Computed example of a mutant assay.
Amino acid sequence: MKPIRKNFGNELPFSLLLHYKETKSPQRELPDHQYHWYEFVYVYRGKGTFFIDQTFYEMRQGDIIVVPGNTVHRGFPDKEDPVMSSAVFFSPYLVNNNTFSETYAYLKLFDAAKKNKQYKFTLSPEHAQLVEGDIDAIHEEWEQRRPDGGHAMALLLHLALLHLNRYCLPQAAELGATNELVPDWFREALAFINDHLDQPLELSALAKRAAISPAHFSRVFKQRLGMNATDYISTKRIFSAKDGLLQSNDKIEQIAMSCGFESMPHFYRTFKKYTGMTPAAYRKGNRPH
């Protein structure tokens, strides 16, 4: 199945979007969505699991899930008690390009999450109330449609990110993931794929390494992640290539080979399929000036 990518292009001034107090069900939940925007999810009630970057987490009231850009993720709400949550999507350029004289790292929680491979945090009732208030204020500005509402939402987003840094960063090295939700071989397969993107990753070889049949490997992969192994590997390779294009000065050919693409035509074809642009255009359009 082709991964779904949300194009937030010109939906709002200042590159911000809010999905406010939505009740998720398995029927309404989107397949895995990937994009360069950042996201944080706040859980009001209900339960479920959340997959992100090789790991499954349980979701409960007061939980915050932070999702850096270009990260494979998907929520799995409980059928009997589905999660009600708000999700805030924003471009990193919105918080990096501020007019304050003092520099503040609004995205440091996201950076720490990616570094530590820890994406879920739990707020105390007091701190949860503050974050709920931040989200309510953003939603109210959107509903009012004031001429200066975009500016207000941008400022409120900065405040929400500051609160998340204050209340979630101290937990960064304390919380554990819940990978017992999946079989050991599946967890090990995800880690192996992540660590060997530069090498051939054939389904038959992955299944043999897990000591199961290719059919069973494919079936469990699709059940657990909602996408097949081939699409997952392609997505991970493209995300790795996007990081290489923005964070290094390596030639495009070097980046393609380091991400496991067997030929340049295949790389260009796949990159354009997932991003809608060529690698050179992506590098030129997304690097800070």
Rank of each mutant, 00 (worst) to 15 (best):
K222M: 09
H139D: 10
F110Y: 12
A177K: 10
A211K: 15
A191C: 09
A215E: 14
D111L: 14
A211C: 09
Q171F: 01
D195Y: 02
E180M: 05
A210T: 04
P214M: 04
E132I: 06
D148R: 05
N116M: 11
N165D: 13
A154R: 00
H151K: 09
L123P: 02
H196I: 03
F192W: 10
A105S: 14
A191W: 08
A172L: 13
F221P: 01
L107Q: 11
N228V: 00
L157N: 00
R224W: 01
G150S: 08
E202V: 08
L159D: 04
Q223G: 04
A211M: 09
A207R: 03
R187G: 12
S101M: 11
Y119F: 14
T178K: 13
W185R: 07
L190Y: 01
A113Q: 04
A215T: 11
L225N: 00
I212Y: 06
S204A: 13
D195W: 03
S218N: 12
F239R: 08
L175I: 11
E132R: 08
F192H: 15
E143K: 14
L181T: 08
S218G: 07
N116A: 14
E174A: 12
D243N: 14
L203C: 04
L190K: 09
P170V: 02
Y119M: 03
S101F: 11
Q223H: 10
P200R: 03
L169Q: 04
E132K: 14
T122A: 01
T178F: 07
I233W: 08
F121D: 05
Q144S: 14
L157C: 00
A112C: 12
H151R: 11
R237G: 07
L164H: 00
E102L: 09
A207S: 06
F121K: 02
T122S: 13
K222S: 07
K115N: 08
R224L: 12
T103R: 13
E180R: 11
A191K: 15
F221C: 05
D231R: 12
L107M: 09
A173F: 15
D243R: 15
E126G: 04
K115Y: 09
Y232V: 02
T235E: 14
L107N: 14
F186A: 06
A113I: 07
K236P: 07
A128C: 06
S213M: 03
T178D: 15
V131F: 03
W142G: 05
L159M: 04
R146C: 08
A137W: 01
S213C: 04
E174I: 02
H196Y: 10
D111C: 05
L206Y: 03
I212D: 10
K242T: 05
L161W: 02
A112G: 08
E141N: 09
L164K: 01
E143D: 06
S124N: 00
K208H: 10
L159S: 02
I238N: 04
K242V: 07
L109F: 07
E174Y: 08
L225C: 03
A191N: 13
G149K: 05
S101H: 13
P183N: 09
M153F: 00
E202Y: 11
F239E: 13
K108W: 03
A137N: 04
V182A: 15
W142Y: 10
D231A: 13
E141T: 03
A172D: 05
G149R: 02
A191Q: 15
C168S: 06
R237A: 11
